[in-house]
Design a protein around this nucleic acid. Structure first.
Length: 711
DNA sequence: GTAGGGTTAG
């Protein structure tokens, strides 16, 4: 019997050679004929072959295992229990396996050592399914656990764990902790929690593993509660634990606790710990205290690349994209070695600013620094092109990526969706399924969003129903919100409301907000008010929700309620950032605020805008004073004519030749008056105008918009 | 002597 275990033992890859450049290792080359099939090992009646075409194999020798596994002769003698450190009690299992088994255990461990997890698990699986493995020694299980973590597969985790249980493996505390980590890293949080709860005794590591595992999957509340529980039991006050719990407070936006932990770490003398500093920067910026984040960053004794990344991401998060870009150039001059995260952050900032020039420079830097094929940075690049509306370029980068992961697919599908190319989005989604990539909730959100933006009611319904049938993809609140929007868009308000009523959980803010938007579009004031009240009862949280509420109260003359909303905004310390639009002309970004007269060509811009406005009035434009949507302060609404996007477009028109397409980026949602005006403008100027607002793309052409007047 | 920490593309 021959089994083709591909590239079983040829350790040829370059990076592995470099990695093996450690004390106790030496590298040497031996020749091997192309296409040779080399018998590696006989085990339990099976002959294992390496059949990979190898021109020059590098054999890595390590002091702990001296045998050359590529040489078929002489056959490796069955070794006694290896030179590995014994784990005491758990090694009795070797009695039940053949003497050869220890050599195979060695191989599994070796494969894992060289990060060849898939092969290690494959070998384990072959042996296990043939009943060759009665029991496995502890160090091999340890390697198998690493392999499971490496491949992140639920199925493998179950197999390995099941095998441990069935063969009566005796877990020590170390292995219990490892098994919990294995479950956590493979997304099996609930199982991990059960294992944790059933532990006979828990040490600080057990708590730490469980808490950080919960933080990792975003269960911040559970993590925080567990931390409090732990505090009563073991009181782990290590820098690691602080870094973890600060991350949880960041996730919860729990600034009070965050500040307390900050004072704790200062008192305990951990304030110079870079992990804690980074966690604090992240915590402050996620809680909206960017000045304090900057302060922590300034105090960092050694500014690591993670520190820079975190503070830049913080500025970007709060819309201070230009400040973030400044930080990037500061980082460049500080000669900090950037990593792929840096580039992904910078691409995100460029995407926001709509700045082609900076992005090009960053792209060059990315390639120069050897991240040209990096999956993270390239996905950010796909996202960047999507956000510019340059879908061909996005597709191009995507197609050239050597590997794609879930996020790459999600970025592209989302891009097509946001750009009103719903059919293409659905096609990519189906292609993704064909290629065996499992969609996650973000994918579903992207594809449902695409159906929503393009009015693909039947497709959306089909996907939503498919999700509902499968327990592992049960729609979450955001998918419901998406479907409510889709129904709302098609005027099926009853169906939308039914979805809220029949949801298996209590309706969320987003669901009510989606219904509210639908009511606004279809002018169903009664249901709209009801939705608004429900929303307000839940505390709208997001600025845009407050604004929609504010507007719906204002427009229905409920001044008192409107005042309450403003009061709530003030109480929560939410600032209304001035609405702002950018346009890039001749590689130079130009920024406009509403009623902005700071631009050197201000006079010309206003003249042009006024003349355009009177031109469109001739065509039947009526100002929409009761517009309900813009995410901008009330006093700004009253100056409809001089909204930043109108100024940016007027500037674009006077600065470019006739018929040149224009591209505007803005941080707030476009208001319906601007939307109407731009539709008219494309008619009189014969230009295409693309506006990217806070939620999506508006592709204006010949008097209409890709969003179908629904956003 | 082992296991656990910060940023992270949608």
């Amino acid at each position: 019997m021959e089994i083709n275990v591909a590239s079983f033992c040829n350790l040829t890859s370059d990076h592995r050679i470099r990695k093996s450049n450690l004390p106790g290792f030496s590298c040497s080359s031996i020749g091997a004929k192309t296409g040779n099939r080399i018998k590696i090992k006989s085990f339990c009646g099976l002959d294992l072959f390496a059949t990979r075409n190898v021109r020059s194999c590098v054999v890595v020798r390590c002091s702990s295992y001296q045998e050359n596994c590529l040489r078929p002769k002489p056959r490796p003698k069955p070794k006694p229990i290896v030179e590995h450190v014994d784990r005491g009690s758990n090694l009795n299992d070797t009695n039940s396996a053949s003497p050869d088994s220890s050599a195979v255990f060695d191989h599994i461990e070796k494969l894992v050592f060289f990060k060849r997890y898939g092969e290690a698990l494959e070998l384990f699986e072959i042996l296990r399914s043939r009943g060759c493995l009665v029991a496995v020694r502890a160090s091999t299980y340890d390697s198998l656990v690493s392999a499971c973590i490496g491949v992140g597969s639920v199925r493998e985790v179950k197999t390995v764990f099941q095998h441990m249980i069935e063969t009566g493996f005796e877990f020590d505390q170390y292995m219990r902790n490892r098994v919990i980590v294995m479950h956590l890293k493979c997304g099996m949080t609930v199982d991990a929690r059960h294992l944790f709860d059933d532990m006979p005794d828990r040490n600080v590591v057990s708590w730490s593993i469980m808490i950080s595992g919960l933080v990792e999957v975003g269960s911040y509340e559970e993590a925080f509660n567990l931390f409090l529980l732990m505090w009563g039991e073991v009181s782990d006050a290590s820098p690691r634990m602080f870094a973890t719990i600060i991350r949880a407070t960041a996730g919860l936006g729990f600034i009070l606790a965050g500040r307390q932990f900050h004072s704790c770490v200062i008192k305990m003398g951990f304030y110079k710990n870079i992990f804690i500093s980074c966690a604090l920067i992240d915590m402050y910026s996620k809680c909206g205290c960017i000045e304090e984040a900057q302060w922590v960053f300034d105090e960092m004794p050694e500014k690591t690349v993670v520190g820079w990344n975190t503070i830049m991401a913080g500025y970007a998060l709060h819309g201070y994209s230009e400040k973030a870009l400044d930080m990037y150039y500061e980082m460049c001059s500080a000669n900090v070695q950037m990593d792929h995260f840096t580039y992904s952050i910078i691409f995100r900032i460029c995407a926001r600013l709509g700045s082609l020039e900076h992005a090009k420079q960053a792209h060059a830097g990315l390639v120069r620094n050897g991240f040209g094929l990096d999956i993270v940075a390239n996905t950010a690049l796909v996202d960047l092109y999507c956000k510019w509306g340059r879908m061909e370029d996005a597709r191009n980068v995507f197609e050239k990526m050597p590997r794609r992961n879930l996020l790459s697919w999600n970025a592209l599908i989302g891009g097509y969706g946001n750009h009103g190319m719903g059919i293409e989005a659905v096609r990519m989604y189906e292609k993704m399924l064909e290629e065996g990539m499992a969609p996650d909730h973000v994918t579903f959100l992207a594809v449902l969003g695409a159906c929503n933006y393009s009015g693909l009611l039947d497709k959306g319904r089909e996907i939503f129903e498919m999700m509902s049938r499968n327990p592992s993809t049960r729609p979450r609140a955001m998918h419901y919100a998406c479907m409510i929007e889709l129904f709302g868009r098609e005027g099926l308000l009853d169906e939308a409301y039914a979805l809220i009523k029949n949801a298996p959980f209590s309706p969320t803010k987003n669901m009510w907000a989606a219904l509210l938007t639908a009511c606004r579009i279809h002018k169903n004031l009664e249901l709209g008010k009801f939705a608004a009240e429900q929303l307000f009862g839940l505390g709208p949280e997001k600025l845009s929700n407050y604004i929609v509420l504010l507007n719906i109260y204002n427009s229905s003359g409920r001044v008192d309620e409107a005042a309450k909303v403003v009061e709530a905004l003030k109480r929560r310390g939410i600032r209304l950032l001035p609405a702002c639009s950018w346009i890039e002309i001749k590689k130079q970004p130009h920024k406009f605020l509403f009623g902005d007269k700071s631009h050197p060509q201000s006079l010309k811009i206003y003249e042009k805008l006024d003349s355009l406005m009177s031109e469109i009035v001739q065509l039947g434009y009526v100002p929409d004073w009761k517009s309900l949507l813009p995410d901008v302060a009330e006093h700004e609404q009253k100056m409809l004519t001089y909204h930043s996007e109108k100024l940016a477009i007027a500037f674009g028109i006077i600065s470019t030749p006739d018929f040149t397409p224009l591209q505007v980026v803005q941080g707030h949602r476009i208001c319906s008056d601007c939307h109407t005006v731009i539709e008219f403008l494309t008619l009189i100027t014969k230009r295409e105008i693309v506006v990217r607002d806070a939620s999506r793309f508006h592709h204006f052409r010949c008097g209409s918009c890709s969003c179908g007047d629904y956003w």
